[in-house]
């Protein structure tokens, strides 16, 4: 359940919508229970969550805002020491992930936060395992570019 919510939240980037999606996905899962062909229930559930979220995003207007906590720029903080706080670094990581293109974001979230294997990710996203690898590669390269400068600034501070 936690995984379902986490994935939905990363896909739609908004807490309220994520809640709706999880509820809808669970109802769908319940109705479609006889289509469950065995295997990993978590992978099955996550792919239902993803499909539900995708349908939702298709209907949603593109200019809907993301969560405030993801847009709150920690680096705008007047106190540079403040920006070093654990919390803001977490927000920084979150914002960097949230800014990734959807196909890179979902692969990265399933791998780094949910700890799924390439095979499991491939099953949820319905893509070949090789594509999982190349998407992770692109996603990580972007994160390195986004997050590395902050790391350097951190070290240069007295």
């Amino acid at each position: 359940m936690r995984s379902a919510y986490n994935l939905a939240r990363w896909l739609v980037r908004n807490g309220d919508d994520a809640e709706d999606i999880v509820q809808e996905a669970f109802l769908k899962a319940f109705k479609a229970i006889d289509s469950f062909r065995g295997g990993d229930a978590r992978v099955w559930m996550l792919s239902i969550v993803r499909n539900t979220a995708m349908n939702f995003l298709r209907k949603r207007k593109p200019d809907v805002t993301m969560d405030l906590d993801q847009l709150e720029p920690s680096d705008r903080s007047p106190n540079p020491e403040q920006a070093l706080l654990e919390q803001s670094r977490r927000e920084q990581v979150r914002r960097a992930i949230a800014r990734l293109e959807p196909e890179f974001r979902e692969a990265l979230v399933l791998r780094e936060i949910e700890g799924l294997s390439y095979k499991e990710i491939a099953a949820v996203l319905e893509i070949p395992a090789g594509t999982v690898m190349s998407r992770l590669s692109r996603a990580r390269q972007r994160l390195l570019n986004e997050l590395a400068p902050a790391e350097e600034v951190r070290h240069e501070l007295p």
């Binding site: 936690r2 919510y5 509820q23 990581v93 949910e114 390195l144």
Partner: peptide
């Protein structure tokens, strides 16, 4: 280092208790 950094910052979202109760 990137992988460690992401793991350390725990960017994942936790399920709101209200939703858990509802489900």
């Amino acid at each position: 280092n990137l992988q460690k950094e992401i793991a350390a910052r725990q960017p994942g979202y936790t399920l709101p208790p209200k939703l858990e109760g509802k489900l």
